[in-house]
Amino acid sequence: MTIKVHLFGPASAPGETTLEVRPGQSLMQAAVAGNVKGIEADCGGLLTCATCHVYVREPFASRLDLPTEDEMGMLEFTASPRRAGSRLSCQIRLTPELDGLAVDLPESQH
């Protein structure tokens, strides 16, 4: 079983990347493995940076677990402005319920 994930580039680099990934990994892991430009993941998913920031589109944003206090703290350090749906992709665990997940990438991670 695989899950489809759609990542949309920012205005400065428009385009869509669609990945088919296995359940259980994080969105960050899937994006890094898929060589998606725009997900830097400097800390490798240890929740010590904010370089895997994404904007999760509805209806998927409301399907995610609420961000932890640690994730909320790291979201204070995003290079691009936070907005509705801002999450760290290292904290999004891909499940069958998220098949078709759509996220927008910010202009910058640094």
Rank of each mutant, 00 (worst) to 15 (best):
I92D: 07
L47C: 14
Q25A: 11
A31R: 03
V32R: 15
P96F: 02
G9L: 06
L19A: 11
K37Q: 12
A84G: 06
H110Q: 13
L46M: 15
S89H: 03
A31F: 01
E16C: 03
F60G: 09
L64M: 13
G15C: 01
L98E: 15
L7F: 09
M28W: 10
R83K: 12
Q29P: 00
L101D: 14
L27G: 11
R82Q: 14
P14G: 07
L75E: 12
L98V: 06
K37A: 12
L94P: 04
A33W: 04
T68S: 15
E20P: 02
P106V: 07
L47W: 03
S108I: 00
T48W: 00
V36I: 12
P59M: 01
Y55F: 06
D104T: 06
V103Y: 01
S26E: 12
R63V: 08
L75C: 11
P81C: 01
G15R: 08
L27H: 13
L64W: 13
Y55S: 07
M74Q: 15
L19I: 11
V36F: 09
E97Q: 13
V21C: 07
F60H: 08
S62N: 09
G100E: 02
V36A: 10
A11F: 02
H6Y: 07
C49E: 01
E71V: 06
C49Q: 08
R22Q: 14
S80P: 01
D99R: 05
A61S: 15
G24D: 13
P106N: 07
G34P: 03
P23W: 07
L19W: 09
S86I: 00
M1K: 12
G34H: 11
C52G: 14
L47Q: 10
D65V: 08
P23Q: 12
E76P: 00
I39R: 07
L88I: 10
A33Y: 02
T68I: 09
E20F: 05
M1A: 14
M1I: 08
E76C: 05
G100S: 05
S89P: 02
Q109A: 01
S12E: 14
P10L: 00
V56Y: 12
C52E: 15
P81E: 13
S80V: 06
T17I: 05
T95S: 08
I39N: 13
R93C: 14
P10A: 14
H110N: 09
H110T: 13
A61I: 10
T2I: 02
Q109H: 04
L94S: 10
L105P: 06
R82H: 05
V103W: 03
L98A: 12
D104C: 03
F8T: 11
L46G: 13
H53S: 14
M28I: 04
R57F: 02
D65M: 08
S62I: 05
I3M: 00
T17S: 05
S86A: 04
Q25F: 00
S12R: 09
G44V: 09
L47F: 01
H53R: 04
G24N: 10
F8V: 13
A84I: 00
Q109K: 00
